[in-house]
Amino acid sequence: MTALTTALGDGGTIAWRNLIKTRRNPDLIGMVVLTPIMFVLLFAYVFGNAIHIPGISYREYMMAGVFTETVAFGASLTGYGLVLDLQKGIIDRFRGLPMAPSAVLVGRTTSDLLAGVVSLAVMSAMGLVVGWRVHSGPAKALLGMLVLLMFTYALSWVMATLALSMRSPEVFSNASTMLIFPLAFVANTFVDSATMPGPLRFFAEWNPVSAVTQAARVCFGNASPNVTQHSHAWALHHPIVASVLWTAALLAVFVPLATRQYQKAVSR
């Protein structure tokens, strides 16, 4: 076997193991299935009535935001999974086996990506129930989902790096919330970023979450023509390219960083 097929095969085995664990763990199922349902209902029926976006129904506008926000929070699963593994003896077993050293990270990010697919499917179904519709074609809609999944995959590596540096579930939980909250909410996820005051507006317009949300909106045909007219940010006018660039940049930085932190964490 070549090094690459070994790495992929071993990563696949670890992903298989992670998915079994997820299936048997009610907390994780809640995070993957129930949280997305709750967010759709929350924004559709609670906040939705208070927010008005000109030119489009809010339920259609907010769905791309709910998608992006949920997959962004979902990426922290990767960090939890890794710190929990590090605290158990199983990591010593893994290290003693002739497997690819990358397998634990590759397997973890892969199984979390599949959890992300499930989350998106659940949310889409919920969205259709509350009145969300795709106004583009199936190919465009698929592209939108792909952009969302690529982004959550890149964020998984960011969370892996964070978790492997913290090494404690409690500390990681605080740190990841502090990182994801501003990213998910100081953005165009649920409101028009053009309505924010100066510095916040700048942050929101260049926030990768905004680019991904806008890309999803464009792909699903849910973008309001009135909204981007207020903004001159390049990222919001070319959201798909911006999302791909953000994803590539995050991967380029955090895959090597996470790998290094993993080696450091396990060779103590």
């Binding site: 095969g9 079994i20 077993r93 497997m99």
Partner: peptide, 21 residues
């Protein structure tokens, strides 16, 4: 014991076998 508590006995051993290729 370097085993996975969430996996069954059979799954634990199968996983190890697969990681031994």
């Amino acid at each position: 014991a370097a085993v996975d508590d969430d996996l069954t006995g059979a799954e634990n051993l199968e996983m190890i076998g697969r990681l031994y290729h």
